[in-house]
Write a protein that binds this DNA or RNA. Structure first.
Lengths: 342, 342
DNA sequence: TTGTAAGCGTTATCAT
DNA sequence: ATGATAACGCTTACAA
């Protein structure tokens, strides 16, 4: 393992000072363009690479962004990460990614690791059972910017990036009602999390607006897994008066439920019209194709990363109550379409 | 932004030398356990955190592993990454993740970034059009270990982690033949990549073993997207004698194709029996459920990371021709099951 | 426009 | 068992 080339080596060869070499390599305005090109060409020739650690140590900056997500192995999250990586890469930032596996305990540990890695900023989507943001206090105290996305929580000095989940839930429910559903069941996740709580709120608002009473029996909290979908189907089958509309806030869970329902003899959408959430690839594959809310994952990742980087570069300030709302889209497919679309 | 606590601060307060503090914090054997506990408790009290950059600079080591994958937003890859993260996190390594988006050009850029970030080791799955590993020469020359997984290429001093794609392709094809298929079509990706080339090889071997002639018309190279699946269905529909078996090396593509085929009136598995690849979530959702090869993504990620870390810690040496083969599993579901399973 | 030199916070070597 | 000190490679006042 041969020794690395340093700016001192370049300086010596060119009979210049290390300072000049450093400045030239960083495109400092005070260096004449002739020596600049001299230095950069020599650097390339010698196979020089900058030592990020020395630079970070000196500048107290790392050009690294920490990302904490509930799970890496979800279709939605991987599009978000793809978006973040795209922007970070373009802006010369590295991404350190870790997953909380839906547990606060791991989230706390992840936060500590990120802190010790001295990330310049943090992008976080909260675990299912996170109650507060105290484990991020170290960041707040040091003024390290943090952006919450998707699974958020109101917090001073902390931008939230979300879609309007209330409205999305409202739209999905209203769509089912418009298709003639009289009894819409809502299957959701842990309502500690804004995304689920808000969609539930939207669901209720839609019912209220149509003068339909809200029934607790029609609101089901699950873990949104495949198994939860199957269980829900057998539950529905056993109901005295099964719902004729189903709004499940995860496509995979919805699709799994649909499959089981059909096996039990329910016709979709005739007996039960179904709407999912996320526009996961499965929604296009399941029969009948699943209506859903398109959730702009890639875009959300890009915007989260870009906003953070802009802030870090002083191009934008994350204010107290800043919150960014992304557009979603209700995609109507066969699973919920009883009448011809207009 | 207040100043960070350093080992000097601790040393001063305890009237010890920084060296002793450093050693104590690193659990050096030569430090008495009494001063050790004194120092660690004081450090905690003062909110000390070690400066990784200073440490990295000094030790010429980063505790960081670079990961380059073709795409982040794939179901398979996200399980791989989840596995890697799990192991890396446990072993105190950070992961820097980037995607090549299936282009060599970006892969080269990613490799450079990783090199400049001085990662201790590299985990790579190759882009679709990568022809050689020259852009990793800088790593080889410096003795930085690299492990290829899934999309691999033979290379000195570079462990490959794969499943036996030839055998998997063989098994899938043989299964279709066992179900009575006379004409099996094979839909695959860029055969520059081992995974696709090998599965094709397995497909051919199965045909040969059964004395069935290999027909170029039945071997289709595509990009394995949803659209490719749809296109393939309409192609099949127009064939003079359509195949009665279909082996597609991606579940999502297979499922998309199946949906379209059914719309065209093909019965599955009666008219065409279908087998996919990867055991993607969609395979359990599509109707009829898709037979597939279970590809152990999480496990592959864990093993790749663990192998690399073991090497970095001197617990294991990556030899010249080291190659790790993981088990796969043929999962038979309704899409290919014509006879009752034994 | 370029040079000097101090310092970022560790860790490793050599003493004691 | 502990201490003194010199790197590690870079950036940045300050000086020239």
């Amino acid at each position: 393992m041969q020794k690395d080339v340093t700016i001192y080596d370049i300086a010596k060869l060119l009979e210049l000072s290390p300072a000049t070499v450093s400045r030239a390599l960083n495109d400092h305005p005070a260096i004449s363009s002739s020596t600049k090109s001299l230095i950069t060409s020599k650097a390339k020739e010698m196979g020089y690479r900058s030592n990020l650690f020395a630079s970070n140590l000196r500048r107290q900056r790392t050009n690294t962004i920490g990302v904490i997500v509930p799970r890496l192995d979800s279709a939605f999250m991987s599009t978000v990460l793809a978006g973040m990586e795209k922007i970070a890469n373009k802006s010369n930032y590295n991404l350190i990614i870790s997953q909380s596996l839906e547990s606060v305990k791991k989230e706390v540990a992840n936060a500590k690791t990120m802190f010790d890695s001295r990330v310049d900023g943090l992008l976080v989507s909260l675990a299912a059972d996170t109650d507060d943001l105290e484990h991020f206090n170290t960041f707040f105290r040091k003024g390290i910017p943090m952006i919450l996305f998707d699974r958020v929580m109101p917090q001073k000095n902390c931008t939230n990036i979300v879609i309007d989940n209330v409205k999305a839930g409202y739209d999905a429910t209203m769509h089912l009602l418009d298709q003639g559903c009289k009894q819409v069941m809502h299957v959701t996740g842990n309502i500690k999390r804004n995304v689920y709580a808000d969609r539930l709120k939207g669901y209720k608002m839609a019912l209220v607006d149509r003068g339909i009473p809200i029934s607790d029996e029609l609101i089901q909290l699950t873990d949104l897994t495949r198994q939860a979908g199957l269980d829900m189907a057998s539950h529905i089958r056993q109901m005295a008066s099964p719902p004729d509309g189903l709004f499940v806030v995860s496509d995979f869970c919805a699709a799994s439920c649909m499959g089981a329902l059909r096996q039990y003899g329910f016709a979709i959408p005739a007996d039960i019209a179904v709407v999912g959430f996320n526009n996961d690839p499965v929604s296009q594959v399941v029969e009948p194709n699943l209506s859903t809310i398109h959730y702009p994952g890639q875009e959300m990742g890009e915007i989260a990363a870009q906003t953070l980087i802009n802030h870090l570069n002083g191009l934008l300030h994350l204010n107290t109550t800043n919150s960014i709302l992304l557009n979603y889209e209700l995609i109507i497919r066969q699973s919920s379409q009883r009448t011809k679309a207009l």
